[in-house]
């Protein structure tokens, strides 16, 4: 990164989200799962949205999913993203159920499409943090 390019906005782990970011730094995608009813949930919260139990564990998910929707960003929101445009923001539907916002990388953003099978990858954003992103996945292909 050029020294005069401002850093992109970074996640700031807190008491509730630290397990997610610590897992991501290890190259694992983890979400909360309710210990009472088994529902996976994301974003993190204290109570299960389905049964309101507070018992939960952070479980590793497959990292596989598909593009539920997407948008190719052509006007950067801030100078930090100016060199990256165009890039494909996407809502990913994980196999385990939760949706999450991310970016599809490793392909021409103009070829991203709804229904595209994807798998998680991790982008180094410095200071020991990694950001979960998604790349296209071949049929049955999984690293």
């Amino acid at each position: 990164m050029q020294p005069d390019v401002p850093a992109r906005p970074r996640p700031f782990p807190d008491a509730e989200t630290a397990p997610y970011w610590e897992a991501a730094a290890r190259g694992e995608l983890r979400v909360q799962r309710c210990s009472a009813c088994g529902t996976h949930r994301f974003y993190p919260r204290a109570l299960c949205p389905a049964c309101h139990d507070d018992a939960h564990e952070w479980v590793r998910v497959s990292g596989r999913g598909e593009v539920h929707s997407f948008s190719v960003v052509r006007r950067a929101p801030s100078p930090a993203f100016a060199a990256r445009v165009p890039y494909a923001i996407a809502m990913i539907a994980l196999e385990e159920g939760p949706h999450m916002l991310s970016e599809v990388v490793g392909m021409d953003p103009d070829h991203v499409a709804i229904g595209l099978p994807v798998e998680v990858a991790f982008e180094d954003i410095g200071e020991g943090m990694r950001l979960p992103v998604f790349r296209p996945r071949g049929e049955g292909g999984s690293p």
Binding site: R8, P9, R10, P11, F12, P13, D14, T17, F42, Y43, H68, S69, F70, S71, V73, R75, A76, P77, S78, A80, F81, R84, Y87, I89, M91, M100, L101, S102, E103, I114, I125, L131
Partner: peptide
């Protein structure tokens, strides 16, 4: 702020998800 902003969406990008779908 933690799970969306770091990916660089504009507010229009987030509504664009609705439009694409």
């Amino acid at each position: 702020p933690q799970f969306e902003v770091p990916y660089g969406p504009l507010i229009p990008s987030l509504y664009a998800l609705v439009a694409q779908r």
